[in-house]
Design a protein around this nucleic acid. Sequence first.
DNA 1: AACTCGGGGGT
DNA 2: ACCCCAGAGTT
Length: 285
Amino acid sequence: MVDAVVDWFAVEGRDLPWRHEGVSAWAILVSEVMLQQTPVVRVLPRWQEWMERWPSPAALADAPTAEVLRCWDRLGYPRRALRLQECARAIVREHGGEVPRGEEALRALPGIGEYTAAAVTAFAHRGRAVVVDTNIRRVLARSVRGRALPDRSYSAAERGLATRSLPGQRERSVAWNAAVMELGALVCTARSPRCAHCPLADNGCAWFAAGRPAPVEDTRRRQAFEGTDRQMRGRIMALLRRDGTATAEQLLALDEEDAPRVHRCTASLVSDGLAVPEGEGLRLP
DNA sequence: AACTCGGGGGT
DNA sequence: ACCCCAGAGTT
């Protein structure tokens, strides 16, 4: 199974810039943070711009935070941009400006969790690490467990499955991680998997062998986006990216029928460090 | 374990 | 309309 997926990747894998030879560990770390919950196609232009502007942790550490937030643009979850700058400063302060090796040291950095620490270890340092992202979870759920989709929550059992699936040899584990993630992104997709083009169909995939049974019904309904604090925070940040400041009148105009929501959201943005009070309004930090 | 946290494109 | 996307941090 490993060879089938790795061979498939050699032919069909995308030519993404952060996979190029000689790309720094910092550049890869930045790509991984940007890719947290954000699709590749939207990350590409922002990553290119960030790498030209801030090619090292020291460069980002010295940047004005307002500019960092502006260049984050609409990647979403702007707290990631804040943490990325904190991460750069921690790398300068505690690691001499070099991205540290080892998942424990990486996890200690702001904005770096289990996935990103493993991904930087595997893709930047080419070390053996158990990488588990949404793509790998889905490929393993299907190919090994015979399920249409992974469980909603990520369990210790699932991590164990990923650990057992990882090749023991270092170089092989590096190739497997990249290849299986790409397979999940291009072929073993959530919606309409392209089993006709999959190296695992008829070659060990338990879900395909079982006739692609439908997913078990998930009764939980997702929170609507319209009318949420998340949407309001996004609107406020868009205003701040455009003008650098927002007056009280501009803020209240975002929802004339729910002033408490506007106040709640401005307060939470200030609390997060994404905005600073200025008079009755806000400005970028 | 359950919540919050953006934004946009595919279906 | 709804779903999903190389998750992290907090409660």
